[in-house]
Design a protein around this nucleic acid. Structure first.
Lengths: 142, 142
DNA sequence: ATAAATGATTGTATCATACAACTATTGATT
DNA sequence: AATCAATAGTTGTATGATACAATCATTTAT
């Protein structure tokens, strides 16, 4: 395996992640953690704290707090689980969906602007390779 | 511009960043912020708080604290600026360089493992597209 | 010489996260 | 049915990351 590619990737990934995180912070009304959680609920449907913690590789206390914050903002509803008196599902609300949608649009706009000089082939490759990386990580033992 | 690519990229970037951040947290003896700062000093040479803050798009108080923490660990030296009684340069130490090197190796190893089933072309493409993205962001007004 | 600007540090506050402790409910065992 | 063990979630506590504001000493401008 060509060590040079690895070094390039590592180096560029470091910069890339940094840039994304900074960009999200600056351009979002929705906090990073909120976006991630709302997105998860929107994509995968209602879920409890434990499940969400597993899906997002976070501690349940973290999810509990994040979900409570979102509930306060009425971005999610906390619905009792009819089969288990201890448990709840968090479900994204209409308002939550709206916030998520707007956050996404802002992200698309920014991406569109940044990638406007890329060829369609490059954009597609980028998406595909990112997807491939993410799939690889998903399949590994975390 | 094809909206679908944008959506794919946005989605995959979200997952990607999350995965990288989690992975770094789990596999590093060096904290994320420490790695970034050490890397910057290693690559660009000694610099003061203000310069580092600009380079890393962070507040000077943040850099001041991070640098002080690294100084405590003896990963960096704090050298008075001979031309300005207010200012200092932070310079990476031999120990700092060693820690950075080891952190990098760990990252290379992890990457090598994750990308072992990729073609060399894919790896190269990935690095190139990431680099291209980073360059685009660098050239934009942040 | 005085005032303004600047480099860095520190105070304070917010956000993100994890480990530990606790409570109420459920599941397993007797 | 009763008791014990496991579990879902919340809360306490602590650490790390970050930014805005305040402060101090030094440099620069007037």
């Amino acid at each position: 395996m060509n060590k040079e590619s690895l070094e390039t990737i590592e180096k560029e990934v470091s910069v890339f992640v940094r840039r994304i995180v900074i960009s999200e912070k600056r351009n979002s009304r929705l906090e990073r953690s909120a976006y991630i959680l709302l997105r998860q609920l929107s994509t995968h449907g209602p879920a409890g704290v434990k499940t969400l913690a597993e899906q997002l590789h976070l501690d349940i206390s973290t999810i509990s707090r994040q979900a409570a914050a979102l509930e306060n903002k009425q971005y999610v509803d906390k619905v009792p689980n009819p089969h288990d008196g201890r448990a709840y599902f968090y479900r994204i609300t209409e308002l939550g969906n709206r916030e998520l949608y707007e956050a996404k649009q802002r992200r698309y706009d920014r991406l569109a602007n940044l990638l406007k000089d890329w060829s369609e082939e490059e954009r597609e490759s980028f998406g595909r390779l990112l997807e491939k990386y993410n799939r690889t990580v998903s399949e590994e033992k975390l």
